[in-house]
Simulated scan of single mutants.
Amino acid sequence: MAVGVTWFFPGAGGSSTTCVLNKDLAEPFKTEQGLLNAGMFAPLGFFGLLASRRVLATAAWVVAAPVAIEVGQAVLPWVGRNCDSSDAEMNILGGVSGALVAWLGTYIAKARLQPVQPQVRPTLLSAGATLVVCAVTWQVAITPIAVDATSLQSPDDAQKQAATDAFRTAFGDRYTFANVQLQPGPDGHDSLLITLERDGEATLSWPKTDRFNVSLESSSQPGPNSYPVGGSSRRDVDATEAYAIARRYAGEHYPWALRGSTHRTYPVGENAEFGWMTSWRFLQDGVVMPAKLDVEINRAGRVSQLNVDSGPPHVKLPPIKLTRQQAVARARATQTTLDGVSVKARRLAAYEVRGHWRAQWVVAIIPEGSDPSSVLVDATTGRVDDSGPDG
């Protein structure tokens, strides 16, 4: 039901499922999604009361059912839907409103309703027990994440200008926007979603505009929307030519990346069907720094994908105390089951945690037959953060 929220299954190596708590209670009233959620449950409350004639039972179930649905969406991997407090909020309000309208109708029509006293015990056994199960599941398996809002919103002038500036830095005035939307994220880490007029899309972090990801095309057949470097295109470039083109592009648009500690060029897709990616990274005592640049050059020698992190190339870090093996052991200890699960430390990277830079081991959790996930293990304290790396 919710829009644009990332969450993780507990089955993927034991990581907690996250559920979004929207701090803006008024926001769903301003969105089509919120009103639809209310409208969907209003008939259930209305017809539920008319059919059962039980006020207490109907009221309890229009509260318990939305809560159970959201908790179920969070913990059942085959459902594939997001958990969002705004959905439950509007479902409950819709159900209660429908029940109130039905109650008012029966009052005006002087229709008979069932007495409340006989409803107490069966209601506690059914709806009450459902809420207790939901509460226990929430406590054991769900990690709440408070956000300012969950629905896509219209950008203000500053956000529109930030999107324009990011594209001008990357591509000049070549591309025109079809739409720009603000996607709220946890702890104020929002994103601008940018759709191009022809093909292509991009995301820009907000309010810190340091992360910029662009996809100009996703086909293995190079198209006109990819970006020509130097005003010309080639046919069927190889790795050496792709690196030369990517380097020329970086020198023109992101010259700071060329001062990186290391770079590599590698194929994208089977037999480089999508082209070649060149990545520049900054290293500090073996720790990967925030600043990075990835430029994908398609087989026609044009830029098709771009990932930019203009964070600092060097930061002050606390002393590193955990080895790679110790980080793996810490991550492994958080897993509820180890059957068929492989745990590997990918890299040591710098991440900003509550305003301070920390060295973190990025540890991959790879269940057999399932998609991998990642956790961060603080290289100084050993603290494990199962929300995973965010970039």
Score class of each variant (00 low, 15 high):
G4A: 04
F8V: 04
P10A: 10
T17F: 01
T18P: 02
V20P: 01
V20L: 06
N22A: 09
E27T: 08
F29L: 13
T31P: 14
Q33G: 14
A38H: 02
M40A: 15
P43T: 03
L44Y: 05
G48K: 00
A51I: 11
A57Y: 10
A60E: 02
W61R: 04
A65P: 01
A68Q: 03
V71M: 09
V71Y: 06
G80I: 03
R81L: 14
S86A: 15
D87N: 05
M90W: 09
G94A: 14
G95W: 00
G95C: 07
V96C: 04
G98T: 02
A102C: 00
L104V: 05
Y107T: 14
L113R: 13
V116N: 06
Q117P: 01
Q119F: 04
P122L: 02
L125A: 07
T137L: 13
V140F: 09
V140P: 00
I142N: 09
P144F: 10
P144V: 10
P144N: 11
D148H: 02
D148M: 12
D148G: 14
D148V: 02
Q153F: 06
D156H: 07
K160E: 09
Q161C: 03
A163T: 03
F171L: 04
G172Q: 06
Y175P: 06
V180C: 02
Q181C: 06
L182G: 04
Q183T: 07
D190H: 08
S191T: 11
S191I: 03
R198H: 13
L204A: 09
S205D: 10
F212K: 04
N213S: 13
V214R: 01
V214Y: 02
S218R: 14
S219E: 12
S226Q: 08
Y227V: 05
G230L: 14
D238L: 08
T240I: 03
Y243G: 05
R248K: 15
A250L: 02
L258Y: 08
T265P: 10
G269H: 05
G269D: 01
A272K: 03
W276S: 00
K292Q: 07
V295F: 05
R299C: 11
S304L: 06
S304G: 11
S310P: 01
L317I: 00
K321F: 01
L322A: 01
A333P: 13
S342P: 04
A345Q: 03
L348M: 07
Y351H: 08
H356K: 14
A359Q: 00
W361I: 02
W361F: 08
V362S: 10
I366S: 13
D371K: 13
S373W: 03
S373M: 14
D378K: 00
T381W: 00
D386G: 08
